[in-house]
Amino acid sequence: MDKLFPKSYKQETKPHLFCPGCGHAAILKQLGEAIDELGVQKNMALGIDIGCSLLAWNFFDIDTAQTHHGRTASVMVGYKMARPERLAVAYMGDGGAYAIGLQSLLHAVLRNEPITVIVVNNENYSMTGGQKSPTTRKSAEGGDLRGFKGPEMISHLAAKNAWVGRGSVGNPRQLRVLFKKALANQMENKSFSFLEVLSICPVNWKTDAAASFERLKEMEKIYSLGEIKIDDEKN
């Protein structure tokens, strides 16, 4: 049988701690594949937040640091200052990145800090039981479906040579390519990279597999996937 996991996984910690059908696990799998393909496993550090992302504390065979809620971007900025030759990746939930940690994120963007920030958008605060977060679409039951467009916002603030994109667990192959770009940008351009990933949360959404992916399809209609162009006029 061929391999089931990316090489960068810590095999002995599997089955991992994430819930059945968790989008985080599917996303980390593609991140692992991207890390394998770029061969950067031994040359990077992963920062994880409070929230379900912290369940990845022993997920990879990679140096991993767990931070206070919303501070992952700042911690990884500090790490990068100390170890500029290594890749610094901050991985967090939408609550961490867009609510309590928004200021940390924005300053990393504005200063064009050479780190890669990954934000998993599952439209709620998962770890604490599915409360509404900034990304919960207004009136999800119908009517106005406004959501929080993190990558678009950042594309207006980021430096010319920054990289911004959005992927989805609904498209794992594209996600892997986007991860590679987000990591490569940090190495090649020494600039800020940002990737939001649309995700599913079957446990808190109270949806089965099929209904989870249906809701994800709705999200994909509202939020565009792929690389998002930097609007550099104002920079």
Binding site: M1, P20, D208, F213
Partner: peptide
């Protein structure tokens, strides 16, 4: 053809069935 299921890893989420 061969299919493999690692029973210690499967959490029965049903994603493979749906996909």
């Amino acid at each position: 053809k061969q299919g493999f299921l690692i029973s210690e890893h499967c959490k029965s989420c049903g994603i493979c069935v749906a996909k």
